[in-house]
């Protein structure tokens, strides 16, 4: 749906381009993460999609069409856009903020009102409580939720999110990420998501694009980024504990084996990650523990051997 073809953005004052000959096809209905150090061109890349920035050369396409051929306001109204915290309009209520793109699209007011309530529900904010509040009356996490609701308001097929969970504490961030994953599973938008945080990238991304000094260094599934970092820069960026990070990307359900006995000293749910299973194994001192389904029935087991086997299997 979104593709970059040899896109370069050069600012007059800068010695190197902010984005340098970028070619990438962003897959539909998936979350593509743009990650890299500060100044690596992530925001610049994202803003070229909705033409907040025009490339110096190259073409950005949306659904096959060169974005420069589309009416700029129509283009933007058709793309959900969420940026870190501050993007809410401080002089408008939550209701007005969330309803802004439908308002720009001239939806009838009752339809906007109903839509805003649905969206507040979707992002976990009680409509009756939050509808009339102003942004200064929201916590950081609530403001981020409103930001996400606003981006979803006109049901755009594409979402651009620039560090949408940037300015909140780790706990709130975890909750927002979990909710985002749930919403994304239901809605299947094409999402371009900028972050600094490799853990966030691994958790949310279906694909990860790693950028450095305006260039694309690696574009891969999260598992592959961890298992086969393209170079030292990527492996540094992924950081220490690569092995553990790889474990956190795999679910117990994928490796558990059926067993005759149901008698285990401990168990983990099958939705747990391998990393959580390993932790549980180490805590209990057993070589193997049980795996339970959603209602708590033991359905199999997972052990140290499975963990090792997981590492030996090639990642594709």
């Amino acid at each position: 749906m979104i593709s970059f073809e040899h896109v370069t953005k050069r600012y007059e004052v800068a010695e190197r381009p902010a984005v340098d000959d970028l070619t990438i096809d962003v897959p539909d209905a998936m979350v593509t993460i743009l990650i890299g150090p500060s100044g690596s061109g992530k925001s610049t890349t994202m803003r070229m999609v909705n033409r907040l920035i025009e490339p110096t050369s190259g073409v950005v396409r949306l659904g096959g069409a060169d974005v420069r051929d589309l009416d700029v306001e129509d283009l933007r109204r058709g793309i959900g856009y969420a940026i870190q915290g501050v993007g809410l309009f401080p002089h408008w209520t939550v209701h007005e903020n969330v309803g802004v793109v439908p308002w720009l699209l001239k939806w009838p007011q009752p339809k906007i009102d109903a839509r805003v309530r649905d969206l507040l529900d979707l992002v976990g904010l009680e409509p009756d409580v939050y509808d009339g509040k102003y942004p200064d009356e929201l916590s950081g996490g609530e403001a981020q939720r409103v930001g996400v609701a606003r981006a979803l308001a006109a049901d755009p097929p594409v979402l651009l999110m620039d560090e949408p969970f940037g300015a909140v504490d780790p706990l709130t961030r975890d909750r927002l990420q979990a909710e985002f994953t749930k919403i994304q599973q239901a809605l299947r938008k094409t999402v371009v998501f900028v972050t600094h945080d490799i853990d966030e990238a691994l958790k949310l991304g279906d694909r990860i694009a790693i950028m450095r000094e305006g260039r694309l260094v690696q574009f891969d599934k999260p598992e592959c980024v961890i298992a086969y970092p393209a170079d030292d820069f990527v492996s540094d960026f992924v950081g220490s504990e690569r092995a553990l990070k790889r474990l956190s990307l795999a679910r117990v359900a994928g490796v558990a084996s059926e067993t005759a006995t149901n008698d285990w000293a401990a168990s983990v749910p099958r939705s747990a990650t391998l990393r959580e299973a390993l932790a549980r194994i180490l805590e209990t001192g057993e070589r193997e523990i049980g795996v339970s389904d959603e209602s708590g029935n033991i359905i199999g087991s997972v052990g140290l051997e499975d963990v090792f086997a997981h590492f030996e299997r090639p990642v594709e």
Partner: peptide, 18 residues
Amino acid sequence: VPPAIVESARGMGFTPGQ
């Protein structure tokens, strides 16, 4: 006016006049 607010207005498809 914080640039982020102006940018988010543009990004959502406000015309310059709006």
